[in-house]
């Protein structure tokens, strides 16, 4: 629409630079999904409650449905597509597979991004802390218990990896 005011947005997502033109009203979620082709970030409510659209915006977990793309201009973003290490699932992803922490997979992107931040801030969470930490992401499939187990186990695996790396040094 030629009469529409557009803005140019440049973001670095998972290390890749993307530039696109959009209306200021385009949400970051839609920009990631439609302009960057990163459809792993999902929209479940578009009003900031379900948490499926959670991404790391300059390393901080944010709901991409409540952020306009124009606000992210120049930002560094991590989405679910950026978690795997090469062709291997990362520790958290592996743990979700092992403990059946996902069923349909729709909330999973948000869960993983939320849990990534949680474990970074608190590498030794209690079960209560994990439940509170992920309470902003709604899952309709699992009943959460398996997700809590996945995150707890990933925390343990990350600790093991750190101590192994430490002893190897």
């Amino acid at each position: 629409m030629s009469d529409k005011h557009t803005v140019t947005v440049t973001v670095t997502v998972n290390g890749q630079v993307y530039t696109g033109d959009c209306e200021p009203r385009m949400t970051l979620a839609d920009f990631l999904r439609h302009e960057c082709g990163l459809t792993g970030t999902h929209l479940g409510c578009e009003h900031g409650v379900c948490g499926a659209c959670t991404v790391l915006l300059d390393d901080v977990a944010a709901r991409s449905c409540l952020t306009f793309a124009v606000q992210a201009d120049g930002a560094r973003i991590t989405t679910v597509e950026g978690l795997a290490e090469g062709e291997q699932l990362n520790t958290l992803q592996k743990s979700f597979q092992e403990h059946h922490g996902l069923q349909c997979g729709f909330c999973t992107s948000g869960m993983l991004m939320c849990a990534t931040e949680l474990l970074r801030e608190n590498p030794n969470p209690t079960e209560t802390e994990v439940r509170e930490g992920i309470s902003g992401v709604l899952c309709r499939c699992t009943g959460y218990d398996s997700i809590v187990k996945s995150v707890m186990a990933a925390a343990g695996d990350q600790r093991d990896a750190v101590s192994e790396a430490g002893s190897a040094r």
């Binding site: 699932l89 992803q93 349909c104 729709f106």
Partner: peptide, 19 residues
């Protein structure tokens, strides 16, 4: 058995209708 669906879904490579 661990799910064969999971690696795809855990990496954002699922394909839902809006994708």
């Amino acid at each position: 058995q661990q799910r064969i669906e999971d690696p795809r879904l855990l990496t954002g490579h699922g394909t839902y209708i809006d994708d």
